[in-house]
């Protein structure tokens, strides 16, 4: 099981946390990953940037945007799920 934490702190929230989370959810459904991934929210990760912060396992990624969410999921999250 891999945990994806989407930051819903002030900065990330206004930069589209909810949209990013929606995209992740959609992809998790499409790729049938719901029993392999847990999606949760958290307050500020102390990594505020020009985009949304996302933690996958132990690693924090900054600057994910609603537009780049799908590609980020496929490039960074999917390989980690497959490796787990």
């Amino acid at each position: 099981m891999i945990t994806i934490v989407v930051c819903v702190g002030s900065s990330c929230y206004v930069r589209g946390s909810d949209k990013v989370a929606e995209t992740f959810e959609r992809l998790m459904n499409e790729q049938e990953l719901n029993d392999k991934v847990e999606l949760v929210g958290s307050f500020c990760m102390d990594a505020c940037s020009m985009g949304v912060s996302v933690r996958v396992g132990d690693q924090i990624f900054r600057g994910v945007s609603p537009e780049s969410a799908e590609q980020f999921f496929n490039d960074e999250i999917r390989p980690r799920i497959d490796a787990a």
Binding site: V6, G9, S10, D18, A21, G41, F43, C44, D46
Partner: peptide, 22 residues
């Protein structure tokens, strides 16, 4: 958010964000 995390740390209790998947 940061204040809440600080309080959780000081109190040694877990902070659970009640975030519902879209």
């Amino acid at each position: 958010g940061t204040t809440a995390q600080m309080a959780a740390r000081v109190l040694g209790r877990e902070l659970k964000v009640e975030w519902v998947r879209p």
